[in-house]
Computed example of a mutant assay.
Amino acid sequence: MQPVFRFAPSPNGYLHLGHAYSALLNNSLAMAFNGIWLLRIEDIDTTRCRPAFEQALYEDLAWLGLTWPAPVLRQSRELGVYRAALARLDAMGLLYPCAASRQDIAAALARREAGGAASWPRDPDGAPRHPGLVDKLSHTEAEAFTSRGEPVAWRLDMGKALATIAANDSPLVWTRFTAEGELSTVVAQAARWGDVVLARKDIGTSYHLSVVVDDARQGVTHVVRGKDLEAATDVHCLLQRLLGLPTPAYLHHDLIQDSGGEKLAKSRGSTALRELRAGGLTAADIWERLGFAPCPD
């Protein structure tokens, strides 16, 4: 089987050096493993993603000298596929609706802590873990909310999900690989995430669900992404097991940081590739700066 890699940015801002590093690393590893790499546009967040950013993304990657197979999968066109996966999990009794907003959850946490209770556990991203802070809804209650035009989110019942996979006595693990081809086994710790959201109120899916479904649909065998997403592999590995999907091998690379030691981020206004280009840097300069072999002509 030919290895398949993928670079999957979200067009919610302009690409910066961190994106360039991830794209070039995916490209170089695909060549080293005699594989291919795909470009995927993860644009499910319609409140932040913009066509102009997507067009700029294509231009920046082409300027770097990268090419990719067509057509490019755009997640905003695949919502029905994610709904079908969600329905499978619901049919297994593993989902429940939740009407609470982030503000509701923050308020519940504040009330609890004001009462002198012990600190509430948080997930690896720092968000309060579920269940317990807010009430679960029944499906009937969810229908009442939606009939009033009040959408609900859908959460994975982590306890039930872990009990489901525990029945087959097969440990929940994923494979870490290195650029040198070395492999090691990592035990997933999905419980630390609590009842994660698999379908947001506004878009009917989530990063966790859509990325797992698309990696399987596209035959991705190797996922190369930043260390900030390493913990999320717990959830992805669990969803792959529940949905009967293959689990790729994963490499989580170091993050490119600014002069202050903070990771580059669109939300922090990190310098975009197009700004570096306008300032006179060439694609070869970017390749060299990020530690890759000279940019091909």
Rank of each mutant, 00 (worst) to 15 (best):
residue 1 M to Y: 09
residue 24 L to D: 05
residue 38 L to Y: 05
residue 49 C to E: 15
residue 51 P to I: 07
residue 52 A to K: 10
residue 58 Y to F: 15
residue 59 E to P: 07
residue 60 D to Q: 00
residue 65 G to R: 05
residue 75 Q to N: 08
residue 82 Y to M: 10
residue 85 A to V: 08
residue 88 R to C: 12
residue 90 D to H: 13
residue 113 E to I: 09
residue 113 E to W: 06
residue 116 G to Q: 04
residue 120 W to L: 12
residue 122 R to Y: 07
residue 127 A to I: 09
residue 131 P to G: 10
residue 134 V to D: 04
residue 134 V to G: 00
residue 137 L to M: 01
residue 139 H to F: 13
residue 142 A to W: 05
residue 146 T to H: 09
residue 149 G to Y: 07
residue 178 T to H: 04
residue 178 T to W: 00
residue 188 A to V: 01
residue 189 Q to K: 15
residue 192 R to F: 02
residue 200 R to H: 14
residue 206 S to I: 09
residue 208 H to W: 04
residue 208 H to G: 13
residue 209 L to K: 01
residue 211 V to R: 07
residue 211 V to W: 01
residue 215 D to E: 13
residue 218 Q to W: 00
residue 219 G to H: 02
residue 230 E to V: 12
residue 237 C to V: 11
residue 237 C to H: 02
residue 248 P to H: 06
residue 252 H to T: 13
residue 256 I to M: 12
residue 258 D to T: 08
residue 259 S to E: 15
residue 261 G to K: 07
residue 265 A to S: 15
residue 268 R to G: 13
residue 269 G to M: 01
residue 272 A to F: 00
residue 273 L to M: 02
residue 274 R to M: 14
residue 274 R to C: 15
residue 279 G to M: 00
residue 294 P to H: 10
residue 297 D to H: 12
residue 297 D to T: 13
